[in-house]
Design a protein around this nucleic acid. Structure first.
Lengths: 270, 270
DNA sequence: CTCAATTTGTTCGTATGTATG
DNA sequence: ACATACATACGAACAAATTGA
């Protein structure tokens, strides 16, 4: 059995769509360049180990998308380059992050049912007395790309309700200088869109998303800001300077000693 | 038309699998807790706007996975908590990263065709004269989770061929103290498995992956290490301390001024 | 104990989409 | 273009187990 058929058994996505995805990927990566003649149907049949009609179905799709063009008797050609993806850069530093998102355009979402408090995991601090729940959708060119749910401690929200409801919360939070911030972290995992997220972001159910969680603790260890953000998986890009800390002069060996192998947790570079 | 059917139009993944995914997510998130009775088939029919048989197919799947248990006349129950995913922590600091992966177990892959040199993008330095290409697959409990392709400058490789072929390259590189490292960065985007990656990682074609690229430049700005890594998307987790830099004492406002809005690039927290 | 309501289990028939040769 | 096979999805009817009045 061929690689592809084994993969098909694992996925249940129609074969012609899988073949189309691989071909689209080749165009996006520049492996197949604009104007270039791609392999013949016979070659593609052999490579993907599928019937001719299946290859044709895949090529049909990409033709309709405007990526390929067929000419009877000549072959199939790449008609245009794929548009740029991964335009959204994710930041990993408080100051850069806050400065960067302070002008972001968002659309508030009205809520039917407001969850009272966030559910905090271990290491995410203590619950505040009361929270305000804010929700918004982020747009670019009229296209939604991020769905943001924020729990903001009520006593912090009360400091400047107008700013918190009309602008992104994090910069506003940063501008309240007298609130001591003892801790701020973010986590990211890759997930799949649930029905609600899929609907807001206008993507397929189960389409890959970046699930981000940002938690800010005040000087008393109370979680004053807890955000859960779902980004479309295809627009984000993360960039990390591995030597940023080393350059800023802290002790390298000391930091390296922080590593723990807690249970089955494992660590890797990315 | 319901949200789900609109989403179905966008995805072409079988409906029963989509329904199963949503239910699995609810169990993983704790929205449906172990022992709890979940909604009846009739309720699920209405919620997802699908036929009874389709709901049953989804429940069947999760039963086989051991997440749900059905009892005729009583209902369907959550049998156990979902196992912890996201066990692979991605590191964002050179020292921590190097120390952490130095004992990783990998399996070298024999190569048919060795690409001569990496393709460098802007800002990834200058090409070295010659490269050695190494490829390996990372395992945990006999399950593959990462596929690593490394271009290593030949003159660096020649310093300790045995170490570079038998251990992970990055720690070995770090141990060669006289090689000045001027720059090291990583990028991450979310991608989908191509046929080759899907085969090595034993995942579905197009299944979400974390596509990581790590580039190390020597003091002359030459790219001596270029790694392209594909991780299974479902096992990784990224954790970033937003205040790490602030704590190490560098000037916050100075760093914030680094932000550029180059073209249509946009920035966000995650 | 019986009865009715609830809930899952099973099995028709039908239609459509996918994939092969 | 055609015949064939299989998977997906629907709706509907009926069977079997559980529960509580």
């Amino acid at each position: 059995m061929s690689k592809l058929l084994r993969a098909y058994d694992r996925s249940r996505v129609p074969l012609y769509l899988q073949v189309a995805s691989v071909m689209r990927q080749r165009i996006e990566e520049g492996q197949w360049r604009p104007g270039q003649k791609i392999s013949t149907l016979v070659q593609l049949e052999e490579e993907f180990q599928v019937a001719r009609v299946t290859v044709r179905q895949a090529v049909d799709m990409l033709s309709k998308e405007g990526l390929l063009a067929r000419q009877q008797g000549r072959g199939t050609f790449v008609s245009g380059g794929a548009p740029d993806r991964h335009w959204l850069r994710l930041e990993t530093d408080w100051d850069v992050l806050v400065a960067a998102i302070k002008d972001n355009v968002v659309k508030r979402i009205k809520l039917d049912n407001r969850p009272a408090a966030p559910t905090l995991k271990e290491g995410e601090g203590l619950l505040a007395d009361d929270y305000v729940f804010l929700r918004s959708c982020q747009f670019r060119d009229g296209e939604p790309y991020g769905l943001v749910s924020v729990h903001l401690a009520k006593h912090v929200f009360a400091r400047d309700p107008h700013a918190f409801t009309h602008r992104t919360a994090l910069p506003t939070l940063g501008s309240l200088m007298d609130i001591g911030i003892s801790h701020a972290h973010q986590t990211l995992v890759i997930g799949g869109a649930n029905p609600e997220t899929a609907d807001y972001l206008r993507i397929a159910l189960g389409a890959p998303t970046a699930e981000c969680r940002c938690v800010v603790l005040d000087s008393g260890g109370v979680a004053i800001y807890v955000a859960d953000i779902s980004y479309r998986g295809d627009v984000i890009k993360l960039h990390v300077d591995l030597l940023a800390n080393a350059r800023s002069g802290s002790n390298a060996t000391k930091r390296a000693s922080v590593i723990r192998r807690n249970g089955r947790m494992q660590v890797a570079g990315f």
